[in-house]
Computed example of a mutant assay.
Amino acid sequence: MQEERERRPETPAEADGTTGLFTALGKMLKRLRERKGLTQKEFGVLVGYGPDAISSMERGVRLIRPEVLEKADALLDAGGMLADAIPEVREAMSRARTRHPEWYRGYADLESQAKALHVYSNQLVPGLLQTEGYSRAVFSQWRPLLGEEAIEKRVVDRMARQQVFQPGGASPTFSFVLDESVLLRPIGGAEVHAAQMQNLVRIGSFRAVELQVMPMDREEQPSMDGPFNLLTARKGEQVAYVEIHTYPRLITDAEEVRVLSERYGLLRAQALRPSESLDLIDKLRGSL
């Protein structure tokens, strides 16, 4: 059964047969960047991404957004080779947001079209905020152990979900409340942890994102039952999602959703303000 699960298509790219597209685009991007004499860090600055993200794109692990292809085509003198792939990439991204394991698909469909998403986490950095290195460390520690191929598939899937962020244009509203303990747990080691903290500051600076930290010294904690997500769908209805030991539950009952919404409001009220939270994260990152 374990082997069967690992052989199943689990990533959007694999499920839709677009793995080759992003692998080819990644190789082309790398070749053009090197021909131009740019490092991954230098190129990342020009297109608005960090070197880890550029590395992921060049290896086909992360979907390359259309605006990156458009900028890269001009910056790297690609002569339209990258820009011409934008229609296919848009189609692949649309499928990627909805092609997930069956048990997760209902929530994934809603998340990809949500007007607002609010997340509370007291164990890990939420998947939408994870770096590739952090995500790989999480899946590498999974029990029972996953094979290397399965780990890579799940990392790709997680990175694909992050296409919901549109920092340069219209975007859903996001808010995250993280327990301070999440920031103190160096999953993946010091280097991975430092990169993850930097990524939190980066995403937390997006106009559509509010990221708050719940300090360890708070004497009250309104959600001792654990993490949860609140999602407002396009038609305005709100649902909740919880997952414990890979057992997912999509909550649509109005009263249950109301209770979690009330808890989330209390969490936000007791947490540090977004600016204070980013300052704390930056301070903790600087001490690593």
Results as ranks from 00 to 15, higher is better:
Met1Cys: 02
Glu3Tyr: 11
Arg7Asn: 08
Pro12Glu: 08
Gly17Asp: 08
Leu21Val: 02
Gly26Met: 07
Gly26Pro: 04
Lys27Asn: 11
Arg31Glu: 15
Lys36Ile: 01
Glu42Val: 03
Phe43Val: 04
Gly44Cys: 02
Val45Cys: 03
Gly50Val: 07
Ser56Asn: 13
Met57Pro: 04
Arg59Cys: 07
Gly60Asn: 07
Leu63Lys: 09
Ile64Tyr: 04
Pro66Cys: 09
Pro66Met: 12
Val68Leu: 06
Val68Cys: 05
Lys71Phe: 08
Leu75Ser: 07
Leu82Glu: 12
Ala83Ser: 12
Ile86Lys: 11
Ile86His: 12
Glu88Val: 07
Arg90Trp: 08
Met93Ile: 13
Ala96Glu: 03
Thr98Leu: 14
Pro101Phe: 05
Tyr104Lys: 02
Gly106Phe: 02
Tyr107Val: 00
Ala108Trp: 01
Leu110Lys: 01
Ser112Ala: 13
Lys115Leu: 09
Ala116Val: 03
Leu117Phe: 07
His118Pro: 00
Val119His: 11
Ser121Asp: 09
Thr131Glu: 13
Ser135Asn: 11
Arg136Leu: 06
Arg136Cys: 04
Val138His: 12
Ser140Tyr: 12
Gln141Thr: 08
Arg143Glu: 15
Arg143Cys: 06
Pro144Lys: 08
Glu149Val: 09
Glu152Met: 12
Glu152Ala: 13
Asp157Thr: 06
Arg161Pro: 02
Gln162Pro: 02
Gln162Arg: 09
Val164Glu: 05
Gly168Ile: 01
Gly168Lys: 14
Ala170Asp: 09
Ala170Tyr: 11
Pro172Asn: 09
Thr173Pro: 00
Phe174Ile: 01
Phe176Gly: 04
Asp179Tyr: 03
Asp179Ala: 07
Leu183Arg: 10
Leu184Cys: 13
Pro186Gln: 14
Gly188Arg: 10
Gly188Cys: 06
Gly189Arg: 12
Ala190His: 09
Ala194Thr: 11
Val201Leu: 13
Arg202Gly: 00
Ile203Ser: 03
Ser205Asn: 10
Ser205Ile: 03
Arg207Ala: 06
Arg207Ile: 02
Ala208Ile: 00
Ala208Trp: 03
Ala208Gly: 01
Pro215Asn: 07
Pro222Gln: 13
Ser223Asp: 10
Ser223Ala: 15
Asp225Cys: 02
Asp225Ala: 08
Pro227Ser: 07
Pro227Glu: 04
Leu230Trp: 02
Lys235Gln: 15
Lys235Pro: 01
Gly236Trp: 15
Gly236Ile: 11
Gly236Pro: 03
Glu237Asp: 14
Tyr241Glu: 00
Arg249Gln: 07
Ile251Arg: 00
Asp253Ser: 01
Asp253Thr: 00
Glu255His: 12
Glu256Val: 00
Val257Ile: 00
Arg258Gln: 09
Val259Gln: 14
Glu262His: 15
Gly265Arg: 15
Gly265Glu: 10
Arg268Pro: 08
Ala269Lys: 15
Ala269Leu: 09
Gln270Ser: 04
Leu272Pro: 05
Pro274Gly: 05
Pro274Phe: 03
Leu278Asp: 10
Asp279Thr: 11
Asp282Thr: 12
Lys283Ser: 14
Lys283Glu: 13
Leu284Ala: 08
Ser287Cys: 09
Ser287Glu: 14
Leu288Asp: 06
